[in-house]
Lab assay of single mutants.
Amino acid sequence: MSIQHFRVALIPFFAAFCLPVFAHPETLVKVKDAEDQLGARVGYIELDLNSGKILESFRPEERFPMMSTFKVLLCGAVLSRVDAGQEQLGRRIHYSQNDLVEYSPVTEKHLTDGMTVRELCSAAITMSDNTAANLLLTTIGGPKELTAFLHNMGDHVTRLDRWEPELNEAIPNDERDTTMPAAMATTLRKLLTGELLTLASRQQLIDWMEADKVAGPLLRSALPAGWFIADKSGAGERGSRGIIAALGPDGKPSRIVVIYTTGSQATMDERNRQIAEIGASLIKHW
């Protein structure tokens, strides 16, 4: 067993022997301040990774656009098919120029040779490549099948209805392509620590998230040296922004954090800054 596999296998073990965790309302004060600064709703939840206990939450059962955070769930569904012998990570998928959609920095470079399922998941999570996500959605049967996968996990809230990039439209009061912070946090925890996926697939999923290259201005910008984070960000229309993450000190994750916002007129930089400040408060009061 590799060191990384050992780390993920012992996530519940280490967490069980940690000192009790206590909620700190100071972080919620910052979440509410972010709402004021952005002029928009902000949803927040913080779960203990081992027990699933909610440590703090704000608007945990209000719907927010998922945006690209759905790509972690998508690759979880792909990995479940791999575990069941219905898919192979090494299978190569070929596609054409007509398949390319807006923001496809990886797939646009491989029109000639195609990409493997493993490479597509890596591109979808680490670079948020939209064509990679659409190609992977095709392998599982489309958005409705991802929703069905989530329902089978016990998540009857999260739903995907459309493809990239239309799913980022974020129309107010439109339930399409949305989740709730509580539902997303619980589902992410199941994917990373539950028995739904094999140990190898859980490790692969967290490795992809740990290698995320496009979430630097968010929670990662607030992390002290030595902290662990595996995350996936999302951005959408109407001032929408979000991030889902597993993080913790001492090089291992111990909490799940989900943050979503929508309806702001603020710039992307300002949305990023507010999420980073929430992260800084979380870490300060850990």
Score class of each variant (00 low, 15 high):
24 H>V: 09
24 H>L: 11
25 P>S: 12
27 T>L: 14
27 T>F: 12
29 V>K: 14
29 V>I: 06
29 V>D: 09
32 K>T: 10
33 D>T: 08
33 D>Y: 06
34 A>W: 03
35 E>Q: 07
36 D>Y: 10
36 D>I: 11
36 D>V: 15
38 L>G: 10
38 L>M: 06
39 G>R: 09
40 A>Y: 09
40 A>D: 04
40 A>R: 03
42 V>C: 11
43 G>H: 00
47 L>P: 00
48 D>M: 04
48 D>E: 05
48 D>R: 04
51 S>H: 07
52 G>M: 10
52 G>K: 07
52 G>S: 11
54 I>W: 11
57 S>N: 09
58 F>N: 11
59 R>Q: 12
60 P>Y: 10
61 E>K: 15
63 R>G: 07
65 P>I: 14
65 P>Q: 03
65 P>A: 11
66 M>L: 13
67 M>L: 14
68 S>Q: 00
68 S>M: 00
69 T>D: 01
69 T>Q: 01
71 K>F: 00
71 K>P: 00
73 L>N: 09
75 C>E: 01
76 G>Y: 09
76 G>I: 09
78 V>G: 02
79 L>S: 03
79 L>G: 02
81 R>Q: 08
81 R>C: 05
82 V>P: 01
83 D>L: 03
84 A>M: 12
84 A>R: 13
85 G>C: 08
85 G>A: 10
89 L>G: 06
89 L>V: 11
93 I>A: 14
94 H>G: 05
96 S>V: 07
97 Q>K: 13
97 Q>W: 13
98 N>G: 08
98 N>W: 11
99 D>V: 06
99 D>K: 05
100 L>F: 03
100 L>E: 14
101 V>I: 12
103 Y>L: 07
103 Y>M: 11
103 Y>D: 07
103 Y>K: 03
105 P>M: 07
105 P>L: 08
105 P>C: 04
106 V>A: 15
107 T>K: 01
107 T>M: 07
108 E>G: 13
108 E>S: 14
109 K>H: 13
109 K>P: 11
109 K>T: 13
110 H>T: 12
110 H>S: 13
110 H>A: 14
111 L>K: 07
112 T>I: 15
112 T>H: 13
112 T>S: 10
112 T>L: 14
114 G>T: 11
114 G>L: 08
114 G>M: 12
114 G>P: 10
115 M>N: 05
115 M>Q: 11
117 V>T: 09
117 V>G: 02
117 V>M: 04
118 R>A: 14
118 R>C: 14
119 E>A: 14
119 E>I: 02
120 L>K: 00
120 L>T: 06
123 A>H: 05
124 A>W: 01
124 A>G: 12
126 T>V: 07
126 T>F: 03
129 D>Q: 00
130 N>E: 01
131 T>F: 08
131 T>I: 02
133 A>H: 00
134 N>E: 02
134 N>P: 01
135 L>W: 03
135 L>A: 11
135 L>E: 13
138 T>R: 14
139 T>P: 12
139 T>C: 15
141 G>I: 15
142 G>R: 07
143 P>N: 07
143 P>M: 11
147 T>F: 03
147 T>S: 07
149 F>H: 13
151 H>G: 05
152 N>T: 10
152 N>S: 11
152 N>C: 13
153 M>N: 06
156 H>N: 14
156 H>D: 09
159 R>H: 11
160 L>W: 01
162 R>K: 10
162 R>Q: 15
162 R>E: 13
162 R>S: 09
162 R>I: 00
164 E>P: 00
165 P>G: 11
165 P>F: 09
165 P>E: 06
166 E>D: 10
169 E>D: 04
170 A>G: 07
170 A>C: 11
174 D>S: 09
174 D>Y: 03
174 D>I: 05
175 E>K: 13
175 E>V: 07
175 E>P: 09
177 D>S: 02
177 D>F: 00
178 T>I: 05
179 T>E: 00
179 T>V: 03
180 M>K: 14
180 M>C: 09
181 P>S: 08
181 P>R: 00
182 A>I: 08
184 M>V: 05
184 M>G: 02
185 A>M: 03
189 R>M: 12
189 R>A: 13
190 K>C: 12
190 K>D: 10
190 K>M: 04
192 L>P: 00
194 G>M: 09
196 L>N: 12
196 L>H: 12
198 T>A: 13
198 T>D: 09
198 T>V: 06
200 A>F: 13
201 S>Q: 15
201 S>H: 15
203 Q>S: 04
204 Q>I: 08
205 L>G: 00
207 D>C: 08
207 D>H: 05
208 W>E: 11
208 W>D: 07
209 M>R: 01
210 E>R: 10
212 D>E: 08
212 D>A: 10
213 K>L: 04
214 V>N: 13
215 A>M: 15
217 P>N: 12
217 P>L: 10
219 L>C: 12
219 L>W: 13
220 R>N: 04
221 S>T: 09
221 S>H: 04
222 A>S: 09
223 L>N: 12
223 L>M: 15
224 P>F: 03
227 W>I: 01
228 F>V: 14
229 I>T: 03
229 I>V: 15
231 D>Q: 15
231 D>P: 12
231 D>C: 06
231 D>L: 09
231 D>W: 03
232 K>A: 00
232 K>R: 05
232 K>C: 01
232 K>G: 01
233 S>G: 08
236 G>F: 01
236 G>V: 02
237 E>K: 14
238 R>N: 12
239 G>K: 02
239 G>E: 02
240 S>R: 02
241 R>L: 14
241 R>N: 10
242 G>I: 00
242 G>N: 15
244 I>W: 00
245 A>R: 00
245 A>V: 10
245 A>H: 00
246 A>Q: 15
247 L>H: 01
247 L>S: 02
248 G>Q: 02
250 D>R: 04
250 D>H: 04
251 G>R: 13
255 R>M: 04
256 I>F: 05
257 V>G: 01
258 V>C: 06
261 T>Q: 12
262 T>G: 06
263 G>K: 12
264 S>E: 04
265 Q>Y: 08
265 Q>A: 10
266 A>Y: 03
269 D>K: 09
269 D>E: 12
270 E>S: 04
270 E>Y: 03
271 R>A: 13
272 N>S: 09
272 N>G: 10
272 N>H: 05
273 R>G: 06
273 R>F: 08
274 Q>D: 09
275 I>Q: 00
275 I>D: 00
276 A>L: 11
276 A>Q: 04
277 E>Y: 13
278 I>V: 14
278 I>L: 14
279 G>F: 10
281 S>D: 15
282 L>A: 12
283 I>P: 03
285 H>K: 11
285 H>T: 10
